[in-house]
Computed example of a mutant assay.
Amino acid sequence: MSNRPFDSLPPTESLELENGLTLVPRVKLSFTIYPTNPTVTKPVDEWKLKLTLIDFLQTSLSSPVTVPEDDLEIRRVGDLKKRKREDPVAQGSICIRDLRFLNRTTNRSNVDEEGKEEEDVKVLEKKYMDWRKYIVEKMDGMELNLEGVKYRLNVAVPASDDFEAMKKAWEEFYAFGNRGHSRSGRQEPDTIVLRGLPSRWFAEPLVSSKPSMLVTHSIFSRLGTIRNLNVAEDNDLGKEAEEIVNIVSGLSCKIVVQFEKFKDFYNALKVLSGRSLQKVKQYPLWQEIPNCLL
């Protein structure tokens, strides 16, 4: 657990929040399964698919990684006979949490401790990004043979985990989105929306199971000075949201955090991207994905 300021937090370290919550680092990959023969109507064997992917991660990478079965989620399509030829037969996600192999940085004796720490953080960030790119390139397009049926795997980093892509998107939005309109001052985002969070995690203990504004404020103020905060029930996420988050049990809530300063928004979104929100002594763990509201 890191005690350093979160704006200089390496991508391999956790950040402790209030109320027993912790942001824990992981690399998350989304994948989609397509049959090489579009006429296939046989359901994909989820168990064999999991074993195949787990074995690949352990034996085919430059730095082998172990992924527990619970961190590999697979969802089959409803009715294969009704699927269109270009539709996938399954989709899912992989969470790689053991990133200790990335912590091997080069010591530099000719710089002071503060400079060395800052340099090491930059080295870790580059290693993290390079390795994530490497594993995506390694897995994207790979062919799988399950019970004699061949499939193609498409792999990508979820949009909400790709901080640099989100940063580029909002910069382009504010640079070109308001062309032709005269506005004073520089336009920058300041709001983060989080959906599907278990309400009880943000409730007052022994008082209520509903999220508390006070508790929620104390949790997210760890990430910066808050201008506005909104907490509401979010029970009807719909089909699209079910493909993005995995809610273990209980009611869920939607939290909208508007920060006073762009710097706080920037640092908060960066630390949320690539991390899971976990509750102490609670299992299985719920995967939280932040979304930037531009």
Rank of each mutant, 00 (worst) to 15 (best):
L272H: 00
A232C: 15
D55C: 14
I54M: 14
S2I: 06
S8H: 10
Q91P: 05
L124Q: 03
D234Y: 11
K50Y: 07
A203W: 07
N228R: 15
L29A: 09
T22M: 13
V149T: 15
K82Q: 12
A232W: 08
I94Q: 01
Y34C: 06
W170F: 04
M129P: 00
V155I: 14
N154A: 14
P68G: 11
P158L: 05
R104E: 11
G177T: 02
P10Y: 09
V256T: 15
V77A: 08
N107H: 09
T59I: 11
P10M: 11
P88C: 13
A169P: 10
L197G: 01
A156E: 07
W286P: 00
D70H: 12
C253L: 05
S93N: 10
L15F: 15
P284Q: 02
N228E: 15
S8N: 13
Y34K: 08
S182R: 12
V231Q: 09
I289N: 00
G148N: 12
V77Y: 08
T22W: 10
I74P: 09
L23T: 06
L23I: 08
A232G: 14
G141H: 07
N145M: 09
R227N: 11
P11R: 04
F173K: 13
Q58F: 13
M142L: 15
V136S: 00
E114L: 00
I33L: 12
L229G: 11
L51A: 12
T216D: 01
G177C: 09
V136T: 08
I74Q: 07
N267I: 03
D71R: 04
L29R: 12
E73H: 15
F202S: 03
R179G: 11
V256K: 14
E164T: 11
L49H: 06
F259S: 02
V157P: 07
A268F: 03
M142R: 11
L285I: 04
D45G: 08
E125F: 01
W47I: 14
K210F: 11
K168S: 15
M166V: 06
D140P: 01
E117W: 00
K126H: 02
K167I: 06
D70M: 09
L80P: 03
V257A: 07
K126M: 06
Q258D: 04
P25C: 05
V149H: 10
G20Q: 01
E113S: 00
S273V: 01
D234W: 06
P25K: 05
V24F: 12
V136R: 02
S184E: 12
S62F: 05
A203C: 10
I33T: 01
S8R: 11
D112S: 03
R97P: 01
K50D: 05
Y128W: 10
S184T: 09
I289G: 02
A165K: 14
F176P: 03
W47H: 14
V257I: 15
G196M: 05
K138C: 02
